[in-house]
Design a protein around this nucleic acid. Structure first.
Length: 277
DNA sequence: CTGCTGTCCTGTACGC
DNA sequence: TGCGTACAGGACAGCA
């Protein structure tokens, strides 16, 4: 599923094709993932020149020449791809295509999302820039400030590091990975973890994410994630999706657990020997 | 404010 | 074989 490394991979792959190009035709169709509305989205993106390709956390956005921004969130199953343009009719598009932009450079830019947890938007403001927590990849990632914040949290540590307002970009895969590398059980209360251990956890985030970006993200055994070229990511998590397989450190079978109530459950993966409660 | 739950969606996997 | 059901989870609304 797309988290920071997958979003960064897609952003960097799309960047050379879209920056400097003008959207000569814009098309969208799905009201519940398009804002402010399908018609306004189309009107405000058509004719605009794309001036940059940026990312914040898992959010990808493209500043436009007139000051608006085209926002794309990949959600669970969203994909952006660049194709050679040709004549097409909306009724011929695959049902999971939710956005198409024809560009002045002869390319066609397509957003697909089977589960429609993604988002398309055109927006002048970017409230997530300030609402979102710091970027783990930034040089000045404020470890000491986060140690203090986490130390006041009574939630389980995995829930805390998934909270985008605290730290930007981690999802289920990389949160499990960070807990494992720091030898912390994902259900440990954040406030019960020593400051040194929290520093260690925070310190693992950047290397994990950088490694994952090097591999163009993670594609799990469901084959769900593909980058903008349609290729699979090659980063292999050591915990996520490895239930029952041996821990890479001690060979104890990896266990799967569930955070939260059944309807809103999130799975977590851990080594019961390396990560004790 | 904090922490927790339900909700949205559909392709895939699995049990009977 | 075919059907029904569980499962995957990012972000946010709503509640105590």
């Amino acid at each position: 599923m797309p988290e920071l490394p997958e979003a960064e991979t897609v952003r960097s792959q799309v960047e050379p094709h879209v920056v400097g190009a003008t959207i000569i035709e814009s098309w969208a169709k799905t009201p519940h993932l398009t804002s402010p509305s399908v018609s306004e989205f189309i009107e405000r993106t058509r004719g605009q020149k794309i001036v940059a390709a940026k990312r914040r956390g898992k959010q990808i956005y493209f500043p436009l020449e007139n000051g608006d921004n085209l926002l794309v969130h990949l959600g669970m199953t969203g994909k952006l791809s660049i194709e050679d343009d040709s004549e097409w009719k909306p009724e011929e598009l695959h049902r999971h295509v939710h956005g198409v932009w024809r560009l002045s450079n002869g390319k066609r830019w397509v957003f697909t999302d089977p589960r429609t947890f993604g988002e398309l938007a055109v927006s002048r403001d970017l409230p997530f820039l300030t609402k979102m927590g710091p970027e783990p990849l930034d040089e000045d990632f404020p470890v000491e400030e986060l140690v203090e914040k986490l130390g006041r949290k009574n939630v389980k540590i995995k829930a805390a590091i998934l909270d985008q307002s605290l730290i930007a970009g981690l999802g289920n895969i990389y949160a499990d990975e960070a807990c494992f590398r720091a030898r912390i059980h994902p259900e440990t209360r954040a406030s019960a973890i020593s400051e040194d251990k929290l520093r260690e956890l925070l310190g693992h985030m950047r290397p994990i994410l950088e490694e994952a970006i090097q591999g163009r993200g993670s594609t799990l055994k469901d084959g769900g994630y593909q980058d903008a070229n349609g290729d699979y990511g090659t980063f292999r998590p050591q915990m996520y999706g490895r239930t029952g397989l041996p821990c890479v450190i001690c060979e104890t079978p990896v266990q799967r657990g569930v955070l939260g109530a059944s309807k809103s459950a999130r799975s977590f993966h851990f080594c019961p020997s390396c990560q004790k409660l």
